[in-house]
């Protein structure tokens, strides 16, 4: 059944239709949110939030809009909110963290084999590079890279134009190229 038909059923209170939507999109939304916020636990919370939001606002959904676009839009907003919240909390708790948890350089690393260490370092470097991108570049990049959306779909999800998406992706790639030089050799 088409997404739109499912959503119309959800609007009439069909629980099974909602479950089908969750099943269809949970992996994609979870991937996007996890890569956006940077860790699986937060990613899952945000993804759950996305579907909860979809359910709560089910009556606002209009069949003219593609459901996937609608979901991606919620996912991006929720992920951004989570990151902003986290930054705010980190600012508050920074002093406390410094006093209670002294930095222990590399204690667990010593037990890890080199290959795992390399993978972890690589991941941290890529993570840092992606997180360092301006919000819009990061959003366009993840929608393209993780979800493999077309420029038109990305533009719809971000509420912008195709040519803006083109330029965001160009700039994101330029920045990443500079930052990731050590891992692409």
């Amino acid at each position: 059944m088409q997404d739109t038909d499912l959503m119309l059923r959800v609007q009439k209170g069909d629980e099974a239709a909602f479950n089908t939507i969750v099943e269809r999109y949970q992996k994609r939304i979870l991937d996007l949110c996890t890569r956006y916020v940077g860790n699986p636990a937060d990613g899952e919370e945000v993804a759950m939030d996305v579907f909860f939001q979809l359910y709560r606002t089910r009556l606002d959904y209009r069949p003219e809009a593609k459901l996937s676009t609608y979901l991606y839009r919620i996912a991006v907003n929720r992920s951004l909110n989570r990151i902003r919240d986290r930054k705010r909390r980190r600012l508050v708790s920074f002093e406390w963290l410094r006093r209670d948890r002294p930095f222990d350089p590399g204690a667990p690393d010593e037990e890890r084999p080199d290959s795992m260490l390399e993978t972890a370092e690589r991941e941290a470097l890529v993570r840092g590079a992606v997180d360092g991108l301006p919000e819009k570049q990061k959003t366009a990049l993840l929608l393209r890279r993780t979800e493999e959306l077309s420029y038109e779909e990305i533009a719809a999800a971000m509420g912008t134009t195709v040519s803006a998406v083109e330029s965001l992706l160009f700039r994101a790639r330029e920045t990443l190229k500079k930052k990731l030089r050590p891992v692409i050799s």
Partner: peptide, 17 residues
């Protein structure tokens, strides 16, 4: 560069999701 982004791990929904 595009390939390097594979380092970002994919997520699997927990069974309780």
């Amino acid at each position: 560069v595009w390939q390097a982004l594979d380092a970002l791990p994919a997520a699997a929904p927990s069974p309780a999701f």
